[in-house]
C-alpha cells in the first residue's frame, strides 16, 4: 500500500499542531495571563514572532495554548459522538427493519433537523458559556453522525458469512455486534472521527467567535479572532494569524482523514468526495 502525499501532509500539519499544544503544557514563550497594555498590537518581531494582541500578549503563546482548547473541545466532542452514537448505530443495525430501528433513525433525522448553531446558543444560554458546554453542544450533533455511519457499515457486515456462522453458533446480537461487527467497521469509524474532529475545530472556533466557547482568560482561537476583528485596520496580523491557524489545522485534519481513507481502502482513491 502506498502512503499518499495527502496523508503525509495531513500527518505533518496535525502533528505540528498537536506538538504545539503539547509543548504549551510545559513551556510558552510568554505567560498568556500577563497583560502588558503598553506592548499592545506590535507587529511580528524577534521578541514576539507573531506579534502581540490588544492586551500586549504574545500571539504565538496564545496560539499554542489556544490549540489545546480547540483540540480538547473537538476531541472530547468526537468522543461523545462515538460513545453514544456507535452503540446506537450497532443496535439499529442489529434490529434492522424493526420499529426500534425506525425510531433510532427517525430520532437521528430529527436531531439533524434542528439548526445546530441555534441549539448550541440555547445550550450555552441555559448552562452558561464555557468549554464544557461547547463540548456538549458539538457532541450532541456528533451522535447521529456516528449512529448513521455505524449502522450503514454494520448492515453490510451483517450479511457476511462469518456473521451467519457466529449466529448459528448461538451468539446473541449484542455479542456479535461488539465482538465481530465493531472490529470490522473500525476503519470507517476512524475516518469519520477524523472528519468530525476537523468539523469540531471549526465549530469550536465558530462558537468561541460568538462568545460561547472557552471563557477568558483561557485563550481560544475563535475568541482571538472575534477580539481582533475590530483591530484589523490597526494591526491586520492580529486577525489574520488566528484565522490562518484555524485554516491550517482543519486542512491538516482533512488531508489526514482523506489520506487515511485512501490508505485503508485504496479502491476508493480518487473517488471520495
Amino acid at each position: 500500500m502506498r502512503v499518499g502525499a495527502n496523508l503525509i501532509a495531513g500527518i505533518g500539519l496535525s502533528v505540528f499542531f498537536l506538538a504545539l499544544a503539547g509543548v504549551s503544557l510545559v513551556w510558552t514563550p510568554y505567560d498568556v495571563t500577563l497583560l502588558v497594555v503598553g506592548d499592545r498590537l506590535q507587529p511580528p518581531s524577534q521578541a514576539h514572532w507573531l506579534g502581540t494582541d490588544h492586551f500586549g500578549r504574545d500571539i504565538l503563546s496564545m496560539i499554542m495554548v489556544g490549540a489545546r482548547t480547540s483540540i480538547a473541545v473537538a476531541l472530547i466532542a468526537v468522543g461523545v459522538g462515538v460513545i453514544f452514537g456507535v452503540p446506537l448505530g450497532l443496535f439499529a443495525a442489529a434490529m434492522r427493519g424493526s420499529l426500534a430501528d425506525e425510531i433510532v433513525m427517525r430520532g437521528n433525522d430529527l436531531v439533524f433537523a434542528f439548526p445546530a448553531l441555534v441549539i448550541a446558543i440555547l445550550i450555552t444560554a441555559i448552562f452558561g458559556p464555557g468549554a464544557v458546554n461547547a463540548i456538549i453542544a458539538i457532541g450532541i450533533f456528533n451522535i447521529p453522525v456516528f449512529a448513521r455511519v455505524a449502522r450503514g457499515a454494520a448492515l453490510s457486515v451483517w450479511t457476511r458469512e462469518f456473521i451467519m456462522a457466529a449466529r448459528l453458533s448461538g451468539k446473541g446480537s449484542a455479542h456479535i455486534s461488539f465482538e465481530h461487527i465493531l472490529p470490522n467497521i473500525a476503519n470507517t469509524l476512524i475516518v469519520q472521527a477524523t472528519i468530525q474532529f476537523s468539523l469540531g475545530i471549526l465549530a469550536e472556533a465558530g462558537l468561541a467567535y460568538v462568545g460561547l466557547g472557552a471563557q477568558p482568560p483561557q485563550p481560544s482561537w475563535g475568541r482571538m479572532l472575534a477580539e481582533a476583528q475590530t483591530m484589523i485596520a490597526l494591526a491586520p496580523h492580529v486577525a489574520i494569524i488566528p484565522g490562518l491557524t484555524i485554516v491550517l489545522m482543519v486542512l491538516g485534519l482533512n488531508l489526514f482523514g482523506d489520506g487515511l481513507r485512501d490508505y485503508l481502502d485504496p479502491r476508493l482513491r480518487e473517488r471520495r468526495p
Binding site: 471549526l202 472556533a205 467567535y209 484589523i232
Partner: peptide, 14 residues
Amino acid sequence: QLGVALPNFWFAML
C-alpha cells in the same frame, strides 16, 4: 481542501 477548511466568518471579515 482549502475552501472546506475556511471558517466562513473569517472569510467574510476579509
